[in-house]
């Protein structure tokens, strides 16, 4: 009980401090290129967090997330171009349509498991790319959609890099908080149970398939919103932005960040967006080194850190903090 009364509880204050720092940081950034990378970090973080819900938390590995990103981007751009509707409506429409497509694909696909599901989602990604490429009358095919209007709020168009960064960060924050609340809800617990043991979850009375499809649709919806953000930021989109390779990148972010960890997904999305940019100077060796780094990072995740001197030191530190806390609470908690 005592803990609730403590105002300066680090666990409560830290997220607020981080959010404050996040909102203050763009004021210090003047370089347009850095701002641009930061916007991409926010968009990719949304993608990674949303994929984490279905692949990390619920354990259903999907390699077709870029398809929903594309559906969202095209939906939003087409609505804005055809009807001139304001961006928030385009954003919502992108989210809803992507979620519906997720529902449509997820319902049969999530009856499959493991490798079969992966192949199925890869196929779906390719299908969406081909539709975007060949349905020229609507999507303008390989030429892509141009002149997508900028988001406007109260008659003022967003145009500077910093404004875009604030917008994308706010969207990320909303998505992050929503997903975090989902994780701590009954639904989130069901998803974790399904990942742990589907049969056991079923015997508890959980409708396993329905929960999986719901999570898939939610993830698809948020990916669609990220797509909308991208379309109205780049002002130009083409089908090549939503190929299967990119789905693999999003999945690497989820795996690197830790399956099921939302802060991990954001951190990994940041890392995997910033590293290729930082390596630009290496020119043609860039992707080679990026690939090697990715392999090393994945291998590094498998090292039993607890048994290394570093891990033992960290454990000692954690133990000390825990003991200090317990004595502070007088043993009752």
């Amino acid at each position: 009980m005592q803990r609730n009364k403590r105002f300066f509880d680090l666990k409560r204050i830290l997220p607020l401090l981080l959010a404050a720092a996040m909102y203050a940081a763009p004021l210090a950034i003047t370089n347009q290129y850095v701002l641009r990378v930061c916007v991409y970090v926010s968009i990719y973080s949304i993608l990674a967090c949303s994929l984490n819900l279905i692949s990390g938390v619920c354990g259903q590995v999907s390699m077709g997330h870029a398809a929903f990103y594309g559906v969202g981007a095209y939906t939003s751009a087409l609505i804005a171009l055809s009807f001139g509707l304001p961006w928030p409506i385009c954003l919502l429409a992108a989210g809803v349509l992507s979620a519906l497509v997720g529902l449509l694909i997820g319902t049969p696909a999530l009856r499959l498991q493991g490798g079969y599901l992966v192949i199925c989602t890869v196929g779906f990604n390719e299908l969406v790319r081909l539709i975007l490429l060949n349905w020229v009358s609507v999507t303008r095919g390989p030429m892509g959609l141009t002149n997508i209007p900028r988001p406007r709020f109260f008659g003022v168009a967003i145009h500077s890099g910093r404004q875009y960064l604030y917008l994308s960060m706010t969207l990320l924050l909303i998505v992050y908080i929503t997903l975090r609340n989902i994780l701590h809800s009954r639904f989130g617990r069901n998803l974790r149970a399904i990942k742990e043991d589907e049969t056991a979850a079923e015997t508890m009375g959980i409708r396993v398939h329905r929960e999986k499809v719901t999570a898939f649709a939610i993830a698809a919806g948020f990916a669609g919103m990220a797509g909308s953000m991208l379309a109205h930021y780049m002002l130009y989109i083409n089908p090549n932005l939503f190929i299967g390779d990119f789905s693999t990148t999003i999945l690497s972010m989820v795996v690197l960040g830790g399956m099921g960890s939302m802060p991990g997904s954001v951190a990994a999305a940041t890392l995997l967006t910033v590293i290729p940019e930082a390596l630009r100077e290496l020119d043609r060796y860039r992707m080679l080194i990026y690939g090697l780094m990715l392999i090393c990072m994945m291998l590094g995740k498998n090292i039993p850190w607890d048994t290394t001197p570093l891990g033992r030191a960290a454990a000692r530190l954690r133990g000390r903090v825990k003991i200090a806390r317990e004595s502070e609470h007088g043993g009752k908690d």
Partner: peptide, 19 residues
């Protein structure tokens, strides 16, 4: 047995009361 290994004992029990 098929308990949920990475959920706590209490959360495992909560799963049982799901309905």
């Amino acid at each position: 047995r098929r308990v949920f290994p990475r959920l706590t004992v209490e959360n495992n029990l909560k799963m049982g009361a799901y309905t």
